[in-house]
């Protein structure tokens, strides 16, 4: 990062951070034939602008459900949630979300470029603008040169990068990522994590990131939310103080190990409840 960019970044930073996601006593209960399932119970959380928040916890702890409630793909059954001060549905209509799913979910009949322009097309941008933005977004994820390829001609990691480019293309306020690298191998995952961090540092986006992996959560986040199942709830929120331009080397520092330990303890405590 050059000095000028650092100065710019500092200049852009507001005095008091704005809350992008504000959740109060949120709960969600699914009614099933086997009785009610308490997916989320009394969740309280604030995500501020520019935060990178990881949700970590065992399967069934409601981390994906929470992300889906934020994105208005599920409706909460109790409590309050506001995105940029409005309801999730209004935020969705205002195209506030860039959602990256566990699978790339690229449309096979569209080239990589026109997959990236899909949201822009829905949002009625002009053709030149669409192409330009797709080009920029693909450059961010280092996929320039693959515009005319079709999804099946790319590797799994490249497909997932294309889907990230698609989420970035329309400049959403909030990037929601649901275990985007879960199906990839360790090396590819490290590499994509590094790229994601650079991207975050460069664009200053607000990111909510669901993961199973403790090192991934600690490495990426500015805030780690530890969750526990039955009922799904938050048991710990940990702030990390690593700089935005961190590298993979920080994983060897005592500070990193300390936070990882705290996350692990939290997860363990959550587990002991139902045994």
């Amino acid at each position: 990062m050059t000095l000028k960019q650092v100065v710019d970044n500092v200049a852009e930073m507001p005095a008091s951070k704005k809350a992008v996601v504000d959740v109060k006593d949120l709960s969600l209960t699914f009614q099933t034939t086997d009785g009610p399932v308490y997916a989320l119970s009394e969740v309280n959380l604030t995500i501020e602008e520019g935060d990178f928040v990881s949700f970590i916890g065992p399967s069934g702890c409601g981390k994906t459900t929470l992300l889906r409630v934020i994105a208005d793909l599920e409706k909460a059954t109790g409590g309050e949630i506001s995105i940029n001060g409005v309801s999730p549905e209004d935020a969705r209509q205002a195209r506030a979300y860039g959602y990256v799913f566990q699978a790339p979910a690229l449309l096979p009949w569209r080239s990589i470029e026109s997959n990236v322009t899909l949201p822009l097309e829905i949002m009625d941008l002009s053709k030149e603008e669409r192409i330009k933005r797709a080009h920029d977004a693909l450059k961010l994820v280092e996929l320039n040169g693959f515009e005319k390829k079709f999804p099946w001609q790319l590797s799994g990691g490249m497909q997932q990068r294309a889907s990230i480019a698609r989420a970035l293309s329309f400049d959403a306020d909030l990037l929601l990522m649901d275990e985007p690298f879960g199906a990839l191998d360790e090396i590819v995952r490290d590499h994509l994590n590094e790229q994601l961090l650079k991207l975050w540092a460069r664009t200053n986006k607000t990111v909510a990131f669901v993961t199973h992996s403790i090192p991934e959560a600690v490495y990426l986040s500015s805030k780690i939310v530890v969750m526990s199942p039955r009922p799904g709830r938050i048991i710990d929120v940990i702030e990390t103080k690593f700089p935005k331009d961190r590298t993979l080397d920080i994983r060897e520092t005592p500070e990193f190990l300390e936070i990882a330990h705290r996350v692990r303890e939290g997860l363990r405590a959550g587990h002991s409840n139902d045994e």
Partner: peptide, 14 residues
């Protein structure tokens, strides 16, 4: 069309 793809379109308010 898969559930994931439908969700994707929903997040774009399509």
């Amino acid at each position: 069309a898969g559930k994931l793809e439908k969700d994707l379109m929903a997040t774009y308010a399509s």
